[in-house]
């Protein structure tokens, strides 16, 4: 735990090498790195490619973050950096119904994002959360009509009550 806190602090270091080593250390920490979930998502927007790569790898294998991170993750779902948005959305999706408060934010991303992968991930997350509000359902129906093959499939699955 001491090491994870050190890595967490190092992610904010000005030295890219230190940040990359911190992201790598958090990747090796596996599920224990969940306490650094938000910082890792932010690190996906780092200017340094190694930091980005290790942060994304850490998030891929980390599992669900804690519920305490929901509010901060929600602020990142519309981030201009697509990898940041992608991972913020993915972590919220992993939280399922616990992240229901983010439904509107995710629906807005689904409607407005210019990044296909981000839109697809928003549809996926809405399915995991169990989209129920009018805005979310409308966004999914629209995606189902005019999206990429994957987006259409994910939107259809999200709207299918048997998947919720």
């Amino acid at each position: 735990m001491v090491e994870i806190k050190k890595y967490l602090a190092d992610l904010a270091c000005r030295d890219a090498g230190v940040r990359a080593a911190a992201a790598e250390g958090l990747c090796c920490a596996g599920p224990d790195a969940a306490i650094a979930a938000v910082e890792l998502v932010q690190a996906c927007g780092d200017d340094d490619e190694s930091v980005q790569t290790w942060a994304a790898a850490a998030l891929e294998d980390m599992g669900a973050p804690s519920n305490e991170s929901i509010i901060r993750l929600q602020t990142l779902v519309a981030n201009q950096h697509p990898l940041v948005a992608y991972w913020a959305i993915t972590l919220l999706g992993r939280l399922g119904r616990d992240a229901v408060s983010c439904e509107l934010a995710l629906a807005n991303v689904l409607i407005a994002s210019s990044d296909p992968a981000v839109r697809e991930q928003a549809a996926w997350a809405l399915g995991k959360i169990g989209a129920a509000t009018g805005v979310a359902v409308a966004a999914l129906k629209q995606a189902q009509e005019s999206g990429t093959a994957r987006l259409v499939r994910l939107a259809r699955e999200a709207l299918d009550p048997t998947n919720q």
């Binding site: 996906c44 980005q52 790569t53 994304a56 790898a57 697509p82 990898l83 992608y86 992968a117 697809e120």
Partner: peptide, 10 residues
């Protein structure tokens, strides 16, 4: 070796 694959930039 195969091509780089993935939906995001990663």
């Amino acid at each position: 070796i195969g091509p780089r694959l993935g939906r995001s930039v990663s």
